[in-house]
Design a binder for these strands. Sequence first.
DNA 1: TGAAAATTTGCAACGACTCCAAGTTTTCAT
DNA 2: ATGAAAACTTGGAGTCGTTGCAAATTTTCA
Lengths: 213, 213
Amino acid sequence: MAEGLRERKKRQTRQYISDVATGLFVERGFDAVTVAEIAEAANVSVNTVYNYFPTKEDLFFDRSAGMVDRLARWVRGRPEGESAAAAVLRELREEVEAVSPRVGLLSGYAAFMKVIEEAPALRSRLWALAQEVQANLEEVLREETGAPADDELPHLMAGQIGWIHGTVIAVIGREMVKGREPREVSREVLTLLDDIEDLLSERVLNYAVREAA
Amino acid sequence: MAEGLRERKKRQTRQYISDVATGLFVERGFDAVTVAEIAEAANVSVNTVYNYFPTKEDLFFDRSAGMVDRLARWVRGRPEGESAAAAVLRELREEVEAVSPRVGLLSGYAAFMKVIEEAPALRSRLWALAQEVQANLEEVLREETGAPADDELPHLMAGQIGWIHGTVIAVIGREMVKGREPREVSREVLTLLDDIEDLLSERVLNYAVREAA
DNA sequence: TGAAAATTTGCAACGACTCCAAGTTTTCAT
DNA sequence: ATGAAAACTTGGAGTCGTTGCAAATTTTCA
C-alpha cells in the first residue's frame, strides 16, 4: 500500500495542528498564544503537540522546511558556464520578477512576517535556518571545487552568497510588513539586486563556474 | 560624593553574581547550570539575580556590553582618506596581530567560547548582538554619507562590513575551541584577512572614504 | 534619629518543556 | 475476523526560566 491509515491520520493531524497554531499566531502574536491553547483549539493534548513539534517555534516554521537547501539546490542546478553567485542572483531575480510567494511576495504574508518581526524567538530561529542554508551551500561548494578541508574559501564564498540571499529576503520582509504591494516591492527589489551585484567583486561573481560536462 | 555606599554595593553585587555565574557556566555548561544555583552560589535570592540581569543569557554576556558599538567606533575614528571597510580591516589586523583578547585570542577564552558553541540560546544572543553592532554601523554610515533614508546602500555596506567582522570573530572562535594556540591562530587569521580583502570589490573597499577636515 | 527611598527576599503563579505510566487505536499475522 | 504487538495519545507530576507582588531589610538624608 502507498500509505496506511495511520500515516494518513498522522499527516493530517500534524498539518491541522500546524495550521491552527499559525492561525492563532497570526491573529494574536507568537508570545500571546500558549501551547495549551493551540492544543485545545486543535482538539489534541499538549503532549500530542510536542509529539509532532519539538518546540513552539517549530509550529510556526513547519512550512519553511523545504527551504534549508534552497541555495544548495540553486547552485547544484545551475547551467554550464554559470558561477555559484550568478546562479543565486539569477534564481532570485526570477522569483522576484515572478512576484513569487516563495520569496515572501504575497499580500497575505505581511501578517505572517509581522509575527516573526515581533517575536525574538522566531527571529533567532530564522537566523538558525539561514545558517543551515549557508552550511548546505558551503558543502556543495566544497564538493564542486574539490577544495581541501582546511581551505576557508568555500566558507567565505558561502558567506557572501548567503548574505545576498538573506539581505534580499530581509528587505522583502521589511517592505511587506510596511504594507506595500507585492508588485511594487518586486520592482524595487529588482533594483536592489542590481545594487547588490554591483558591489560584489569579480572574484565572488566568478567563483565556482560550472565546467562543461 | 563620587559614589555612595549603595552604588558601590550594587556594582559589587552585580559583578560578583556575573562572575559566579560565568564560572559555573564555564565549568558545567550553560544549560546544566540553573539560575537558582547561581543565586545560591552568589549568596543572593533568585529575584536579586533578576533584579540585575533580565535573562539568564545576560549573565553570560555581561562583559561583552561594550562591544555593540565596536564597528561604529572604528569607523568613526578612522583617519582622513580611509574608507569604512579599510578602517575595519585595519583595526581587525591590529587586534589580531597583537593577539588581543578583545577578538578572542586568549587561551582562557577557549572554554568561554565552547560554552557559547554548545548552547543554542547563547549563539542566538550573540547573533542579536552582531545585529546591533551592524545597526549602529549603518547609522554611522548614514550620518557620514548623508544618504537619504530610502537609500539602501548604507544597509548593504553595513552588511558587508558586518560580515567581515563576524566571519573573523567566528573563525577565531572556531579555531580556539579546537584548542589551537592564540599565536598560531593569529597568524592564520591574518592570511584569512588577506583572503577576505581580496574578495571584496573596490566599490566596498572605497565606500565612505573620510574626507579632509 | 527617624521617616523616606531603594533593595532584597519569599511566595505564588505562568508557560515551555520533559518524563512516565496508563489508555486507545491501528496493524497484521493467523 | 481476532487478538496480541506496535504505534499513538493522554493525564499528571515535575523542572526551569521568568514575572508580579507585598513584606522585610538596608541605605540615605534631612
